[in-house]
Write a protein that binds this DNA or RNA. Structure first.
Lengths: 151, 151
DNA sequence: GTTTCATGTAACGTCAAATATTACGTAACT
DNA sequence: AGTTACGTAATATTTGACGTTACATGAAAC
């Protein structure tokens, strides 16, 4: 399975945006995130629809943060992105007629549910502000890694 | 992405096999698991290579359990199957040059590692025998769900 | 010993989900 | 008007899981 990496690069984008003093275009972000501008608009549009980002059309327009980094958890972002399956493994039949298979499914889904709950809880404990703090003090180096990065 | 369901149906197969008094062919298993005989051989071959199953060629041959259900955990099976990625989400870049992205990756992979550890721990607590016990008493009903099941 | 049953395995085909791309529409600034 | 930028539908590409075909090998039955 191809892993869904949207949460990963959206976070990356949000952090850079939170430090920029002006809005950033989809093209710029696509360059930094090594993806396509349309993908950026499509994905970040989900966050805009939730009021976390603001977009402005036309020259000088682009994307900017419209939320308090202290108040946005990774869990919230994960849920907005709507990643369906958190796991790459799963049961073969959702509602099996065989009782043996049903017993297997109960055990597997129960274990996976526990792990999922833990992961969501951890993601719920981490805010954008926490991530910003993670590299506080090395901002210069951080931005030097993207050509044409925010001044 | 398509979720890897091998652990799920291999368990299903092992449970049925553990109750059969004779070996079972790949064709039979493929019928019950709703898959292809070659897939059965490919997948269960991994377990045979680890000594958990025995195969016999020729008429009357097939697959049979060669291990103690008390001693085989779901974790062991998961590891033998070698499912690479447990999660359907992941970081975009494994070794990023951007420090911001690296900070994101650290947080994400750390949270995922915790969840993975929990899931593996849970799978390590469950044996084939536990699964067999789950439906003890309803054996007849269990087997009735597969036509031509073990007598 | 050859026919039949069954596994072993390489090679290739199919399918679904994530991502990428193309194309065109709309709004805003100059 | 022309340029910049987002909005979005439609389509293509990619990747990994799974399925299928084909053929080889070994064991039993006759």
């Amino acid at each position: 399975m191809k892993r869904d990496s949207r949460l990963s690069w959206v976070l990356h984008a949000l952090l850079h945006m939170s430090q920029a003093d002006r809005s950033i275009t989809s093209d710029q972000l696509a360059g930094w995130m090594d993806t396509n501008p349309v993908v950026v608009r499509r994905t970040m549009g989900l966050l805009r629809d939730e009021g976390l980002l603001a977009t402005v059309k036309g020259p000088g327009g682009g994307w900017s943060l419209a939320c308090d980094p202290e108040k946005v958890t990774l869990r919230r972002l994960h849920e907005i992105l709507g990643d369906g399956n958190l796991f790459a493994i799963g049961v073969k039949t959702e509602t099996p007629s065989c009782l043996v298979e049903a017993a297997v499914n109960r055990r597997l889904t129960s274990a996976m549910a526990e792990a999922e709950a833990l992961l969501l809880a951890r993601l719920g404990e981490i805010t954008l502000a926490d991530l910003l703090a993670d590299f506080a003090g090395e901002d210069g180096a951080a931005f030097a890694t993207h050509r044409d990065g925010p001044s």
